[in-house]
Design a protein around this nucleic acid. Sequence first.
DNA 1: TACTAGTGTTCCACGTGGCGGGACGTTCGG
DNA 2: CCGAACGTCCCGCCACGTGGAACACTAGTA
Lengths: 257, 257
Amino acid sequence: MGQVDETNPEPAELLSRCFDILDAFCRGPAEKLTLADITRRTSLPKSTAHRLLASLVSLGALERTGPAYQLGLRMFEIGEHVTRKRDLREAALPFMEDLYEVTHQTVHLAVLDGTEVLYIERIQGHQKQRQLASRVGGRLPAYSTGVGKALLAFNPQTAAQIIKTGRLQARTPYTITNPKLLLEELAATRKTLLAFDRDENALGIHCVATPILANNQAVAAISVTGPANTIQEERIGSAIRTAALGIERTLGTNPPT
Amino acid sequence: MGQVDETNPEPAELLSRCFDILDAFCRGPAEKLTLADITRRTSLPKSTAHRLLASLVSLGALERTGPAYQLGLRMFEIGEHVTRKRDLREAALPFMEDLYEVTHQTVHLAVLDGTEVLYIERIQGHQKQRQLASRVGGRLPAYSTGVGKALLAFNPQTAAQIIKTGRLQARTPYTITNPKLLLEELAATRKTLLAFDRDENALGIHCVATPILANNQAVAAISVTGPANTIQEERIGSAIRTAALGIERTLGTNPPT
DNA sequence: TACTAGTGTTCCACGTGGCGGGACGTTCGG
DNA sequence: CCGAACGTCCCGCCACGTGGAACACTAGTA
């Protein structure tokens, strides 16, 4: 019933390479890339990259100014029509606003994609200087973030995969790199429906997270993130669970994916 | 200096077709499409569409559940990295919030793309039932919208093109379909920096708009939109110009594109 | 000025990989 | 029981994408 196929029938070479190029713009803060940059990041032959770039530009997927390429408005337009994101966002936003109202900390909405967490939405009041690592459309490892652990708790096969492939790299001295410890935490999260991040992803930053469940699957997670000393875990825990229940109810009214 | 090339060196057929498919998801409210739907919308041979869809799925550009395809998270991720949109949004959002605070009407941010207006951002308080035609990532004709006319006023060649190709279709009885009238309005907008929409795009909806200028080019436009009787043009006009100046100043601090 | 190392652009013979008509299996509604 | 509409699969043909190599241009260095 409604399974997502994960086959790999050799996508057209040309296409695959084009997406490599588009992905090149999603890594690192550099957002205008030159032909040479792209050949480096994708290790494509120069002339091939050149040709593909020309095609992408003529399709509006990229825009070119002089020697610099950047993602085009057409990609934005398509991205805004991604239903999974749209539905989630619409359902979650009001409750995220409530959470912000109560906590005055940054509120995140994220989903699991592969072994990483993809941020769908973020609310932070009036652009504080607080530079968090997160960013809408950005990715972070699942095992070192609150939302990530909330999601992993309900995706045991993904958790196992992360552990098996030895991806538990320390991002701070507090990152959990011990598989057994991580699994214990995930088990606790399954019971309390809360996940925490205490300096594990960035020093001085704490976070309380909870999954959004639908049909016993974690379709997303929300979190409240901020400076260690301002995050009161019990108080935020209640608030965030309340918000999560509201979102689940809203999602339930729409026919589930 | 910094011109965008608009050449057309025959993009790879395969690629062009894939974008046709992706575009198919951006038209109409239908957001899950079946193979047959897609062959209809793109008029591709069935087997070809089938193969391309499989490729797109295996790349994560599309997701498949049973017979239904929808845009994948990867497209969202890429879309969020479109710099032109990101920079504009970041610069404009605070001022748009101020505008909302003052007017309590829907606030739009849009850019010109081809002969249409592409909506980048929208603020509307607590999800009122008010269903406007606009939508983030959506398009509307430039000539019948406030933001569109604000942008056309500073893109005379595009305005000429729209008129020449006879695209002035009436969307309501009040839509301006007379080229001369439209040009006069654009000239007025160039002087006052304000554009109006009075039932021209949708009945009962008025709108006040203004361009965001950088180097004497209109890079975007903002508008305040709402029910005809609640839009006070003079008052909103001042507010929206103030906001526009703030945005222009913010954009100016970043090196212009 | 000459030289080098880095860019972006163009060309073209080669052969891979995309093409799509058509056959097949399945699920509907009548 | 049949036809219609859908998704899947196959396979010979040949267009089209491929990428090495040559070219052009701009620094920066000696």
